[in-house]
Design a protein around this nucleic acid. Structure first.
Length: 397
DNA sequence: AAGCCGGGGTG
DNA sequence: CACCCAGGCTT
């Protein structure tokens, strides 16, 4: 029993699309790609060598940087056999400025492997591709799908970000073991008729639409398939552990005050920590840093407001419909609050709004009815947590 | 699983 | 400045 529950919680089933939905997705994606896909030099060839060169260059390197290097490299070294015997010093010269120079050294070793073992012909299957120096799971899948039409998803940062948003995947993409989740889904999604185009189409989606900084989804052509778009949670995906590992959680408390000096407060609901107690609206900064960046300051509004309510945003100002403006100041120095099982770092962000704030409350209550305006003089009528009392104390310092 | 490799772009 | 980018190798 216990083990079953554990298995269930681990093997969360993200994929529940019908065959019909899968077919619709493929058709929409590839139609878009045919119309809007980027025209890149290595997309005009099926030569596995050229695709290989482009994929190695594109590792951790942006497309616009790669293009001139790619053109020059292919012109100087047009085949695998040429690469195998090219003077290493000249090789590094062709690579100069691209960085990660072991990439090109490994590529020459692999070219020599190919000449010795495969008569100079690039292997045409995943197993053999993966034996070549410098070719890992991503690059092998890219070559297999693009040059040989093998239905293998090329799972890179783009595909993980797109997939994580489509299915609201909670697994940390920085952990190698999470890869299986993405592969299981993409194995079922990939179009067996056009696997190379499918991979490149998803990469283009990740590079041009569902970009890392697109915290609020545009009205994009895959929105009907995008679970995070439907739920207004795109800014939460992909989940990626911060490099500086924190033993504690970071929160931002929004001290939102209207023109009467009343505070916007929220009663924590069933299932939340500190259930039933009233607090400044709190947002956990899983993915954002506790600093004065625009994204951090706006986190509350993207958590609780529908995107339709937000018509504009500037440095410290968010505008809602009806020209309603919200002005944010600077974060306070965080305070620490220790529970039995976790430590919170909580900073306060003072926010001023125009008027009585009824419009804001109306917007908020579309999604969450637990907000209200509270007169500081009647705070005695509300149950407050120790944390919230500390936050008030900080205010009066 | 974590550290390393490198340069450029972005907010 | 911090973070990101069509990752893979070594330890």
């Amino acid at each position: 029993m216990q083990r079953n529950e554990r298995l269930l919680s681990i093997n969360k089933q993200y994929f529940n699309w019908s065959d019909q939905q899968v077919n619709d997705f493929r058709r929409k994606l590839l139609n878009w790609y045919d119309q809007e896909g980027r025209d890149l030099p290595w997309r005009r060839t099926k030569d596995p060598y050229k695709i290989w060169v482009s994929e190695i260059m594109l590792q951790q390197t942006q497309v616009s940087t790669v293009i001139p290097y790619y053109e020059r490299f292919i012109e100087q070294i047009p085949t695998i056999k040429d690469l195998a015997v090219y003077p290493t010093e000249d090789l590094l010269n062709l690579w100069q400025g691209l960085g990660y120079y072991s990439r090109v050294r490994n590529m020459q070793i692999a070219a020599q492997q190919i000449v010795e073992l495969y008569e100079g012909q690039m292997p045409n299957n995943m197993k053999e591709l993966l034996t070549l120096k410098g070719i890992g799971p991503y690059t092998a899948a890219a070559i297999a799908s693009m040059a040989y039409n093998i239905a293998e998803p090329a799972i890179d940062g783009n595909l993980m970000r797109v997939t994580a948003r489509l299915f609201e995947i909670e697994e940390d993409i920085s952990q190698p073991k999470s890869r299986k989740i993405f592969k299981d889904i993409l194995d079922r999604l990939i179009d067996p008729d056009r696997p190379g185009d499918f991979n490149q189409a998803l990469m283009d989606v990740g590079a041009t639409i569902m970009t890392p900084s697109a915290h609020r989804p545009e009205n994009h052509f895959l929105k009907e398939f995008d679970q995070s778009y439907q739920n207004h949670t795109s800014h939460l995906y992909p989940v990626k552990k911060k490099k500086t590992k924190q033993l504690q959680q970071e929160w931002l408390a929004y001290q939102i005050q209207n023109n009467r000096g009343h505070y916007l407060m929220r009663q924590h609901q069933v299932g939340e920590l500190l259930e039933g107690l009233w607090h400044y609206p709190l947002v956990q900064l899983d993915l954002l840093a506790l600093n004065n960046s625009k994204e951090t300051k706006e986190a509350f509004f993207y958590t609780y407001l529908d995107e339709e309510s937000i018509v504009a945003e500037e440095d410290a100002i968010i505008k809602l419909k009806n020209n309603f403006e919200i002005t944010m100041k600077e974060l306070s120095t965080p305070i620490q609050h220790i529970f039995s099982h976790r430590k919170w770092q909580v900073a306060v962000l003072p926010v001023r709004i125009e008027g009585s704030g009824q419009e804001l409350l109306d917007y908020l209550q579309i999604n969450d009815s637990s907000f209200t305006w509270v007169d500081p003089l009647s705070l005695g009528d509300y149950a407050l947590s120790k944390l919230q009392i500390k936050l008030f104390d900080r205010l009066s310092e």
